[in-house]
């Protein structure tokens, strides 16, 4: 379903550093219904990847939709995706549009 999102881009972030290094805000039942990237920390995996930018909205994490998920649940999904040893990358489906 994510592939049907207009203007969405799949970004694969290799786990190249010990942290992912993004801050997100938003989630279901807030003013920002899908998580938005508000900070990218220098030296983190996301920064090293070079394709994530502040202001982008995260639609999916490893194919799991974040629609309807509250902030903590979305944050947990991303944290788990970074922690798991099953993959040495995280796939983010992102959009520039809010």
């Amino acid at each position: 379903p994510g592939l049907l999102e207009p203007m969405s881009t799949l970004v694969r972030v290799p786990k190249s550093a010990s942290t992912l290094g993004i801050a997100i805000e938003g989630g279901a039942n807030t003013r920002q219904p899908l998580p938005r990237i508000v900070t990218i920390q220098r030296g983190g995996s996301a920064h090293n990847c070079g394709q994530l930018k502040v202001g982008q909205v995260i639609l999916e994490v490893n194919g799991i939709s974040l629609r309807g998920r509250e902030h903590r649940e979305a944050a947990c999904l991303i944290a788990e995706a970074f922690k798991t040893k099953e993959k040495d990358y995280i796939d983010f489906l992102i959009t520039e549009f809010n």
């Binding site: 942290t19 992912l20 290094g21 993004i22 801050a23 997100i24 805000e25 938003g26 989630g27 039942n29 807030t30 003013r31 920002q32 508000v38 900070t39 920390q41 902030h71 903590r72 944050a75 991303i78 944290a79 970074f82």
Partner: peptide, 15 residues
């Protein structure tokens, strides 16, 4: 517009 005003702001989480 009205709906936006009534929804709370989100917390921010560093990951």
């Amino acid at each position: 517009r009205e709906k936006r005003l009534t929804l709370p702001p989100s917390e921010i989480t560093l990951l």
